[in-house]
Simulated scan of single mutants.
Amino acid sequence: MKKIGILTSGGDAPGMNAAIRAVVRSGISAGLEVYGVFNGYEGLVNNNIRKLERGDVSDIIIQGGTILGSARLEDFKLVEVRQKAVDNLMEHGIEGLVVVGGDGSYRGAQALTEMGINCIGIPGTIDNDIDSTDYSIGFDTALNTVIENVDKLRDTSSSHHRCSVVEVMGNRCGDLAIYAGLTTGAEIIITKETGYDESEVLARLRHFEEVKRKRHAIVIISEKITDVHLLAQKISQHSGFSGRATVLGHIQRGGSPTARDRILATQFGDKAVQALVAGEGGRCVGVVEEQLITIDINEALQLPKKTRKPLFDLHDRLV
């Protein structure tokens, strides 16, 4: 193998640039030419590909987002569209590809591998919803963004006998909510794993106020579970707290990556290059119990969802 490529796909995540840097420099150190694919699979189909040198990735380790850009391409599911991508890669002499993204990106990588282009996936998603790895690139940075904002909300909530309802990202995975809830001392955490019962939430808040004499409260809830503004109104109507809703939204995707994300992304990028050099394809890298691994993508996509029940139980004991 003499030439490899790298692309970032799906939602951006802090640390993707650190992974790009690692792939480029690790690849060059291994005697490879490394090509950047701009705007994800869309750029692959449109032949938006160019060679990257060491200097092209200088100083990007500190930057959020992705210098390669990202885009979603539903048509990549079509074999004739993927064939254009394969033809473009072959035109450049690129034999292997590193794909940074989530499970949808992994499926594209597996499909390309089946068409003759060895691909290695790197988990890059702030939701931490890739079940083949304990942590994905971007999760730690997004978590710290949530923590910083919730800490500020608690300061003002305590001054106004207020209950702040904070919606965080993580539609399919509640890791941001549970980890943020534990680290900020939130009174209630709501995710798909816990389920949602409005009457129970209101009853618990009344208990916190009337029995535990709490002057303020924080409710952290994963997105797309309920209308948080309506919930805040009901908290004002049915408890002594003044309910206020805050939707953190895409602010969670931004910012300079934390040290943890920079290190993780660097390790993942180097591991991906090693895997390609070793002739691997259709696999993804991950970290399990602090050990770097590669696993078959099909196997990774079929793994059961991670359970955080011990963390929820811990929260309930401490609240």
Rank of each mutant, 00 (worst) to 15 (best):
residue 51 K to E: 15
residue 279 G to A: 13
residue 259 A to D: 08
residue 229 H to I: 02
residue 217 A to Y: 12
residue 17 N to A: 05
residue 273 V to A: 09
residue 228 V to Y: 00
residue 274 Q to S: 14
residue 138 G to S: 11
residue 201 V to Q: 01
residue 227 D to V: 04
residue 189 I to Y: 00
residue 76 F to E: 12
residue 136 S to Q: 05
residue 207 H to A: 13
residue 189 I to H: 01
residue 113 T to Q: 11
residue 47 N to Q: 07
residue 284 C to G: 07
residue 175 D to K: 02
residue 306 K to G: 10
residue 108 G to E: 07
residue 10 G to P: 01
residue 256 S to Y: 02
residue 209 E to Q: 15
residue 273 V to N: 03
residue 263 I to V: 13
residue 70 S to Y: 03
residue 162 R to Q: 13
residue 213 R to A: 12
residue 98 V to S: 07
residue 213 R to W: 11
residue 106 Y to A: 11
residue 154 R to S: 14
residue 172 R to E: 14
residue 131 D to K: 11
residue 288 V to T: 10
residue 253 R to M: 11
residue 99 V to P: 00
residue 284 C to W: 02
residue 213 R to L: 13
residue 126 I to T: 05
residue 225 I to M: 04
residue 160 H to E: 11
residue 263 I to T: 12
residue 44 L to I: 07
residue 179 Y to G: 01
residue 281 G to Y: 09
residue 275 A to E: 14
residue 52 L to E: 01
residue 18 A to T: 03
residue 237 Q to C: 05
residue 247 V to T: 07
residue 176 L to E: 07
residue 294 T to R: 07
residue 108 G to T: 02
residue 167 E to F: 01
residue 253 R to Q: 13
residue 146 V to I: 15
residue 1 M to Q: 11
residue 105 S to D: 08
residue 296 D to L: 04
residue 206 R to K: 15
residue 44 L to W: 08
residue 91 E to L: 11
residue 264 L to P: 04
residue 261 D to C: 08
residue 238 H to A: 06
residue 179 Y to P: 01
residue 34 V to H: 02
residue 193 E to T: 07
residue 291 Q to P: 06
residue 207 H to Q: 15
residue 285 V to G: 02
residue 264 L to W: 08
residue 78 L to G: 01
residue 104 G to D: 12
residue 49 I to N: 05
residue 113 T to K: 04
residue 87 D to T: 08
residue 124 G to R: 03
residue 269 G to C: 09
residue 129 D to A: 10
residue 313 D to G: 02
residue 229 H to F: 01
residue 6 I to N: 05
residue 171 N to S: 15
residue 180 A to N: 04
residue 269 G to H: 07
residue 115 M to C: 09
residue 178 I to S: 01
residue 97 L to M: 09
residue 313 D to K: 10
residue 262 R to S: 08
residue 220 I to T: 04
residue 43 G to H: 04
residue 288 V to N: 12
residue 122 I to P: 00
residue 224 K to T: 10
